[in-house]
Amino acid sequence: MSLITVMQQIASGFGATLLIFFCTLLFSMPLGVIVALGRMSKFKPLSLVIQGIISVLRGTPLMLQLIVVFYGPYYAFGIKLSTNWRLYATLIGFSINYAAYFAEIFRAGIQSIPVGQTEAATVLGYTKVQTFLKIIFPQMIKRTIPPVTNEVITLVKDTSLSFVLAYQEMFTYAKQVSAAMSSLMPLFVAGVFYYIFNLVVTIVMDRIEKALSYYN
């Protein structure tokens, strides 16, 4: 198999990788904000439960979590799994896992904003929701761009873990081609794809960071 054919084969899984990547960001970021707020809730039981869940999600392998999400419904409830479940389980597993990381980043970001901001908003009559959306949230986003960039870069590489559910994304293809050819070359090609993907991600995140640097 020529290099070009190998690249074409691997690239055919790139769409699936992109799908996992964007859907995970789309679901995990808003979920992360909600989880962060729950984690900071003054209602202790809620805060403690969320703390426990975050602890498990961060303390166990993502690969294991994907397997649990995928097989869980069958083993626990005997539910027959549809063909689409492979993708859904992948997206659910990734979104929940990344939400846990984002939640901790967002929590730190929110707590790093001086309490004077909230006090000024309170005195001006902003409601709690207004204070969060107008004053705290935008400042939190700016402050958390560097750690969020780290997570996004990790996510690009982590999408490869979905091979464990045999979801046909880039890395699954690369492994198959590699096995068929008895060669490591397809895996190197996949590596180059991931690297270029991350270069683009870094440039985009850098742009966002710069766009938000109009104030300190």
């Binding site: 004077g116 006090e119 000024a120 004053i135 104030y215």
Partner: peptide
């Protein structure tokens, strides 16, 4: 209205 020691203007 209240004016704070640390101003507490909205930086953004």
């Amino acid at each position: 209205g209240l004016v704070f020691q640390q101003f507490n203007l909205f930086p953004h």
